[in-house]
Design a protein around this nucleic acid. Structure first.
Length: 293
DNA sequence: AGCCCTGTTTTTAC
DNA sequence: AGTAAAAACAGGGC
């Protein structure tokens, strides 16, 4: 659940389900995920009651009266609210609540489960540097950000210290809706392009957030998100026609990751490959394309 | 069965 | 500043 729609969905669910519960024990399966020695982590959390659950970028913050539990799900995983008899096989840690329910935390690659006393939050390196939230940043701030960077626009959008919440799954459609090539130098964007980009960020993240996140992640009870491949326009659709112009979608290498683009709608240079479609283009095309067949 | 490749993240080092 | 490599794996293809 690495990206904003999934994290925001889990936070919403946790806010509803966890507030008021009190932690009475923590099982640590993978000490390397912690920021403290296991014994210290467990004793710090023991007796903590949950006040609220919020997020900063892709980090989940479980605010308790003892301090903040900061969770980063890395490249995906599950947060499951269950009882002692239904614990999932895969888990890195399990929070035990006094009402006998449990929260199992798992991630399959690079996650974090940190405990930070409230007065030391500012010193927590991994979250101290998080940039403006992708859904909250203003047009002006985005324009300033974009103008300050020379590298690929995609690199900037994935940089959590600059703008937080976008990851390498949702960015394909965001760049498509903004009609931007991922390797386009950030500081060459025009004013209208920046505006279109902000719109695209919203259109790219909000629908999934409202549907409980992507189908490949599950909610607190193990049910998959309702944002499916049918909602995706060009991401992971290599070889299929562009929903806007019909050109074949291609997968390209962009540095260390891959990108799915329509080469006609997202030329690297404005003059690169002509005009695109006459309908005004994908910007604002919030409606899902016809279902995948 | 086993090896190779890829990847929804983030940090660190050149 | 920008790019590359690394680090707690798992699933798919060959």
């Amino acid at each position: 659940m690495p990206e904003l729609p999934e994290i925001a969905s889990r936070v919403r669910e946790m806010q509803g389900a966890l507030v008021g519960k009190t932690i009475c024990h923590v099982d640590i399966v993978q000490p390397r995920s912690l920021n403290l020695p296991p014994e210290e982590f467990v004793s710090s959390m023991n007796g903590a009651s949950v006040c609220e659950v919020t997020r900063r970028g892709k980090w989940i913050q479980v605010v308790t009266n003892r301090g903040h539990l900061l969770i980063n799900m890395g490249m995906g995983g599950e947060l499951l609210l269950c009882d002692a008899t239904h614990l999932p096989e895969k888990r890195r840690a399990v929070l035990h609540f006094t009402d006998t329910t449990r929260l199992a935390v798992n991630f399959w690659w690079f996650g974090h489960i940190h405990f930070v006393p409230t007065d030391q939050l500012a010193e927590h390196r991994l979250t101290a540097n998080i940039g403006a939230d992708a859904l909250e940043i203003s047009t002006k701030d985005l324009a300033d950000l974009v103008a300050r960077h020379r590298g690929p626009i995609k690199t900037l959008l994935l940089d959590q210290a600059r703008i937080a919440g976008i990851g390498n799954a949702y960015i394909h459609d965001i760049l498509f809706m903004a009609r931007l090539h991922p390797l386009r130098p950030s500081n060459t964007l025009t004013g209208p392009e920046v505006f279109a980009l902000l719109e695209a960020i919203h259109h790219g993240l909000i629908p999934s957030m409202e549907l409980g996140g992507a189908f490949y992640e599950t909610d607190l009870h193990g049910r998959p998100g309702r944002f499916t491949v049918d909602h995706i326009m060009v991401g992971y659709r290599e070889g299929q026609p562009c929903p806007s112009c019909g050109e074949t979608i291609v997968k390209i290498k962009t540095g260390s990751n891959s990108s799915f683009i329509c080469p006609r709608c997202q030329p690297l240079r404005p003059t690169d490959s002509g005009e695109g479609d006459p309908s005004g283009g994908p910007v604002g095309t919030a409606a899902p394309p016809s279902p995948a067949s």
